[in-house]
Nucleic acid binder design. Structure first.
Lengths: 116, 116
DNA sequence: ATATTATGTCGTATATTTACGACATAAAGT
DNA sequence: ACTTTATGTCGTAAATATACGACATAATAT
């Protein structure tokens, strides 16, 4: 039971952490940027653009898909991945809210001195 | 060598992933929110407010501190933690840029159909 | 029918994260 | 000096994440 004390936190905290985790690997960040750069969806030659094996890329894709950040539709032999912009926009809002909350306080002094 | 192919990605991707990783656990999200809610800094009774052992909380604090998101100053017997709002603002900007880039494209159709 | 091609899934090795008790350290109180 | 109090660090167990080769699957192509 040395993990997952997650239940003890609020739904918002868990949700933000879940999405943050999805972005916590440069490969997944790169995948999202790649999908965003191409107007249409790309098939599995995503792997060709990344310095990782096809298996590993597929794993990262599944993770993003599990969270719903990307969608994948089978089109004959190839699979067509694309961003779920709706969800991404909602997620963006969550992050913005969190950061505004975090950066609004005066917090420490301007230097490094922590004038409590 | 089954890890850390990180070098192969851009500095931006690595940086974003690094910060996202810091936010990838509800405890760390909660810590940041806690520090933001109190106008001044809090000492280690942060642990008292979280459903985790003091050791574990200390570990999370070190992680946030290592990234520079929070600062900790020793004040006699207690340690005073507070947010690094400057860095948080810069990080916020990175996330905003990323999300704008990700949500600007038309991507898929309005439904789930992926019209490639 | 058989080969080719594009993907996903399984198994597995290694690295990292999470969580906590036990001990170390250091300031403040008695 | 000795105890108390607040923290950090170490060691360690268990859970997850990362990475990839080998095999399975299914749709085209020949």
């Amino acid at each position: 039971m040395t993990y997952a004390k997650t239940e003890a936190f609020t739904a918002e905290q868990q949700q933000l952490a879940r999405v943050a985790k999805a972005l916590a690997h440069p490969a997944r960040v790169a995948i999202i940027q790649l999908l965003a750069s191409k107007q249409a969806c790309i098939s599995g030659d995503i792997a060709a653009e990344l310095p990782l094996s096809r298996t590993t890329v597929s794993q990262h894709l599944q993770e993003l898909k599990a969270l719903g950040l990307i969608k994948g539709e089978i089109d004959g032999l190839t699979v067509c991945y694309c961003l779920n912009t709706e969800l991404l926009q909602r997620v963006q809002q969550q992050f913005v809210t969190f950061f505004i909350e975090a950066t609004s306080g005066a917090a420490c002094g301007p230097d490094d001195a922590c004038a409590c």
